Simulated assay, not measured.
Amino acid sequence: MTWLEYNEALQELRTDSEVVVGTGAQATWRVRRADLMPRHFIVSTSADGAAIRPFSSDAVVTVNGRQLGAGNSRLTDGDLIGAGSGEFRFWATVPGETRSVAKAPVAAHLLDLRRHSALSLHRVSTGIGRDDSNVLVIDDDAAASFHAEVRREAGGHALRASDSGPVRVNGRVVSAPVMLNEGDEIEIATLCLRYTREELPEGVGAEMAQRITSSIGEEMAAVQSRRVRSSSVEGLSSAVTVRAPMRAVAFVSSVIAAVAIATLLLLHRGP
């Protein structure tokens, strides 16, 4: 007889059967408070042993820290299954003394070395995109409104790309959810971020939310600033150029007026 364990609760796995684990009404074992999908993964048993597979391509499942693909993966006694924010333990015979208990979330950051900043991934979900409702807002026309999401699940963090724009991890375009590993480089629009669980480099501070202007946007802002300064200088130069002849005319007029007054005084006195 085999078992599946979660937080000291046991689900029996009978031979030649399937158990669907999730939060929905169609799940065989409904697990609350684990951030699971309605039907997250399936454990099937037969005379040859037990196997596990994600219910769909959107479901992230790990076994002993390794992300599973779409097909069946064989389970062995004591295997640790990560799904959502929960950890499950598979027992091939009698449940062992080691119990799967809730653990503190993994502390991690998205590091932007170019700007010497880091975004904390302390939330269950961290949205990335151009829309102001995202945690990481990218002011870049190349970014979609809701471009990607980093979710805390399966004992780590999974990157989920939307269909609105390309997302690359270590240079490879990803479409299905992918578990992030230490040092993974994420490219979104013109932004390049590094996933890390290690201590942040000296001089880099962690932020709870962030707004980033792309390098193109920064260059455009700099050009605009230079244009404004140039326009101001040109305006000042034009003003000086216009005022110079006006001052000369005023001076000549005052001289003529003075000569005219002197002439009138001489005529008034007579010979």
Rank of each mutant, 00 (worst) to 15 (best):
R229F: 03
N7P: 00
V106C: 04
P201L: 09
S100C: 04
A148W: 10
M1Q: 09
F251C: 03
G69S: 07
G217L: 08
V43M: 10
S253E: 11
D16W: 07
G205R: 15
R74S: 03
D139T: 05
T263V: 09
S100N: 05
R168F: 12
S238K: 06
D77S: 14
W91K: 07
H40N: 12
E187M: 06
A34G: 13
T190G: 05
D48C: 09
M37A: 10
I212E: 02
F90P: 00
H40W: 03
A258W: 12
S73P: 01
V20S: 10
T241S: 12
V252M: 08
V20R: 14
L13R: 11
P38K: 14
S46F: 06
H116L: 06
S164F: 13
N72G: 01
D16P: 00
N64S: 05
L13K: 04
P166K: 05
A144Y: 00
S230E: 13
A47P: 02
V249E: 14
K103R: 14
M220A: 08
E219K: 12
A244L: 12
L36S: 11
D140F: 03
D132Y: 11
S133I: 07
A258L: 10
L75S: 08
R229K: 14
R123H: 12
A107C: 04
E234D: 10
H109Q: 01
H147F: 04
E97F: 09
E198Q: 15
A257R: 14
V61T: 06
L4T: 02
E207K: 15
A262W: 04
G49T: 05
E218R: 15
A239F: 10
T196F: 09
V94D: 06
R247D: 10
A51F: 03
F146W: 12
G127P: 08
S225E: 15
S230F: 05
S214P: 07
G127F: 00
F41L: 12
S215G: 08
L68Y: 10
P38C: 09
D139L: 10
S162D: 02
L10V: 09
L13S: 07
R39Q: 14
G49I: 11
A148T: 04
V101I: 13
R243P: 00
Y195I: 03
G82N: 07
I138W: 15
E18G: 04
S214V: 02
E219C: 03
G270T: 07
E87D: 08
A161F: 03
H40F: 04
V173P: 00
